[in-house]
Simulated assay, not measured.
Amino acid sequence: MDSLPLSTEHYIGNELSLFEKAVNWKVYYGSKLKPYLKNRVLEVGAGIGGTTLSLCDGSQKEWLCVEPDASLASDISKLLETKKLPDCCHLHVGTLADLPPQAPFDTIMYIDVVEHIEDDRSELALAYEHLAPKGVLIVLVPAYQWLYSPFDKAIGHYRRYTRSMLLKAMPPQSKILHAWYLDSFGLLASSANKVLLKQSNPTPKQIKFWDSMLVPVSKVTDKIVQHRFGKSVLVIAQKPG
């Protein structure tokens, strides 16, 4: 585990602890990812470790958390020190550009991270270089620019995505395995909030209601609508062997 530097990039958002308890949502999208979370996994923008806790089950050969903000990374460091994360987990405080390309990963994932990166195409192209042959690149982002709110701006989102936008940002050499919208029922609720309530910041009660009541419904409705719309976009792409 890397030691924490005196100064790194500082993340301006404050939503990580708010969404940390969205257990049903993490389990739902995690069910789509788990078949690909094998061998050497790189999690870019690991934040405070909420996704790592949810998805890293110790069966992986290595799970490297990359986080540029030293303050956020200190939370992951504490999880490692207290053995709340498996022994395969490690922490690098910095960015993807710091890592040597000589040790490719089988899976690289960005969970609600790419929308924070101004040059998303260059970032994903760099990630592609760190993939082993037949490795997969996983990207989950918030959907639809018309839902962009003051909350998005406050936490450093440059944009929200349609499926076609995200596909265009993916490395052109990659093979698209899945390109899905997730959380169709959550999209309806967000749309109503945008039009009727016009509330920019979700409250803990709203997050709990969404996670406990709406996400389970979305697990059903997403299948019915065949992932044609939803509050998030998920793309899984593979590097040719």
Rank of each mutant, 00 (worst) to 15 (best):
I48Y: 13
S218N: 08
I76A: 15
L64N: 02
D183L: 01
A70E: 13
L96Y: 06
L33V: 09
S59G: 15
V220Q: 09
G241N: 11
I236T: 01
A127P: 04
L196D: 02
Y36Q: 00
Q145A: 07
S149M: 07
N39A: 05
I76T: 13
A237V: 06
A97Q: 11
H130S: 11
K84N: 15
A22H: 05
R40V: 10
H178D: 12
K134R: 04
P171D: 12
H130R: 07
P100H: 07
G156R: 00
Y11T: 05
D98V: 05
K61S: 14
F229E: 14
I12N: 12
K175M: 10
K175F: 06
H178I: 03
P133L: 06
R228V: 01
S149L: 05
G30C: 04
T221R: 05
E9D: 12
S17E: 15
M165D: 15
Y28D: 10
D2V: 01
L4P: 02
I236H: 00
S17K: 15
K61Y: 13
T162K: 06
D98E: 08
L214A: 05
V195M: 09
Y161M: 04
R228Y: 01
T51L: 10
W25Q: 04
R40Q: 14
S59I: 15
V215A: 06
L197G: 08
Y28R: 03
D57F: 12
P101M: 14
G94Q: 04
G30M: 05
K26L: 09
A237S: 15
T221K: 03
A46N: 04
D183V: 03
A169V: 01
M109H: 09
E9L: 13
Q173R: 11
N193G: 02
L137P: 06
I138T: 00
I111H: 13
Q199C: 06
Y36A: 00
S184G: 14
W210P: 00
Y144D: 08
I76L: 11
I138G: 02
M109I: 07
L126D: 02
P142D: 08
L99Q: 03
I111P: 12
W180S: 04
P35D: 13
D106P: 01
N14K: 13
P133C: 06
S191M: 12
M170G: 08
D87C: 01
W180R: 10
T82G: 04
S184W: 06
R121L: 01
T95L: 06
V225R: 10
L16M: 14
A169M: 09
L33M: 13
V195Y: 09
C65I: 07
V114P: 03
L140I: 00
K208V: 01
R121W: 02
L140K: 00
